[in-house]
Amino acid sequence: MNIKWIALIGLLFLSGPVWAGEARPLTDDPASEARLKHLAVELRCLVCQNQTLADSNAPLAEDLRREVREMIAKNMSDQEIIEFLTARYGDFVLYRPPLKASTTLLWVGPFLLVIVGATALIITLRRRAGKVVDVPVTEDEHRRVEQLLAEGGKRP
């Protein structure tokens, strides 16, 4: 009986006056929560329109976060966790599409665009340089134009 009372008082004391406590983190294990967050921001919630697993409040997203938490607790690697999810839902859950035959163009495309663009630019400039004849503008004239432009506002 006594011990119970002491424990109860101790508990009251530990929880302390309600106006002075430091708020507890939402989870007991901030490290694995951080890992969950790190994983979940790159995963897509399946039921929502277009939201990450981290941001979604849909019940399925909550369940999946729970599954991922459990896998983190079991010390599974990121790779294993992602495989668990893609085995069930396919690549759709990944916001970072894996590099595969079907996604090569997606990943290479942007850089291909730059290379093609740059090549086209160089070829066009070369070809153009051969076609255009320009009356040379002297340095003096150039400066005069600059000045006219700069003062344009002042002249009525």
């Binding site: 399946l46 039921v47 019940p59 399925l60 369940d63 999946l64 069930r88 839902y89 396919g90």
Partner: peptide, 13 residues
């Protein structure tokens, strides 16, 4: 109850 079988079957709705 917990939706675990659902997850294993890839149920999303």
């Amino acid at each position: 109850d917990a939706g675990r079988v659902g997850i294993n079957y890839g149920v999303y709705g």
